[in-house]
């Protein structure tokens, strides 16, 4: 193999790469906040109302979890305009990521809610808690504390999966890599560099989530967050 690596050429495309990093961070953080909130709401209404609502939420979760993120993006970006809803690539990416993450969050938080023992709720009633107080202090907060590490792994996976949004021309990090590649033909160098950037972003996101976990739920949850592995059980 007689190939000379030239990482130097990348320096002049710093701006493109930085703006790619910025967009990746932006859509990731936004979709995490929106997706997690939606997941919390959906998991709650599903367990409170039951019946048709539960069926609908479960159908949504199963459909999203059993189809590829890329195809979901295609439906949002190419399909929605056909229904009269034209969205830009960045918005489509954000919508796609939020829809995807909401389904996974719902599933993870649902597992947390179901792990709350019935006697806990009865204890809350015995203490004269109102239904809202029971929901808040006995169900949702302990449930999220329990599944927080799994939730964070899913957030990191979502940040990494945001690279797929380059396929619908969202100008995030992977797309800026493709642009620099097309300008310089230094494909291997640029993709090595960008892979390392993603690795750093993943570590930074996990550390940030662990800090938030420490602030919200204490040291034990934070430690589990750093070492958690992605949930793969269906």
């Amino acid at each position: 193999m007689s190939y000379t690596f030239q990482f130097g050429v990348l320096a002049q495309y710093q701006d493109q790469i930085l703006s790619g990093i910025w967009l990746t961070i932006k859509i990731s953080v936004l979709s995490i906040m929106l997706g997690c909130t939606a997941g919390m709401v959906l998991a709650s209404v599903r367990s409170i109302w039951g019946g048709a609502v539960r069926l609908l939420v479960d159908a949504y979760v199963e459909i999203i979890r059993n189809t590829p993120f890329l195809v979901q993006l295609f439906i949002v970006y190419f399909g929605l305009p056909g229904l009269g809803l034209r969205v830009g690539a960045d918005t489509a990416a954000l919508i796609g990521m939020t829809i995807n993450l909401a389904a996974y969050s719902t599933e993870i938080i649902r597992a947390g809610i179901e792990a709350i023992h019935k006697s806990q709720i009865e204890a809350g009633e015995a203490l004269g808690f109102t239904r809202f107080q029971i929901y808040r202090h006995v169900i949702i907060i302990p449930a999220i504390a329990k599944v927080y590490p799994a939730l964070c792994s899913q957030f990191v996976l979502m940040m990494l999966a945001s690279s797929i949004c380059s396929a619908i021309s969202t100008q995030e990090l992977a797309a800026s890599a493709a642009f620099v590649e097309s300008q310089t033909y230094r494909s291997f160098e640029i993709y090595i560099a960008v892979t390392l950037i993603y690795l750093a972003l993943a570590l930074a996101l996990r550390a940030a989530l662990a800090l938030i976990g420490m602030w919200l739920f204490g040291r034990r949850v934070a430690r589990r967050t750093m070492t958690a592995v992605p949930e793969v059980q269906a």
């Binding site: 990494l160 380059s166 992977a174 892979t195 993943a202």
Partner: peptide
Amino acid sequence: QGIPVLMILFLSYYGLSL
């Protein structure tokens, strides 16, 4: 687990041809 599948794909694609 810390890098996107897409990057693994690009690195194998360009790495193999390199």
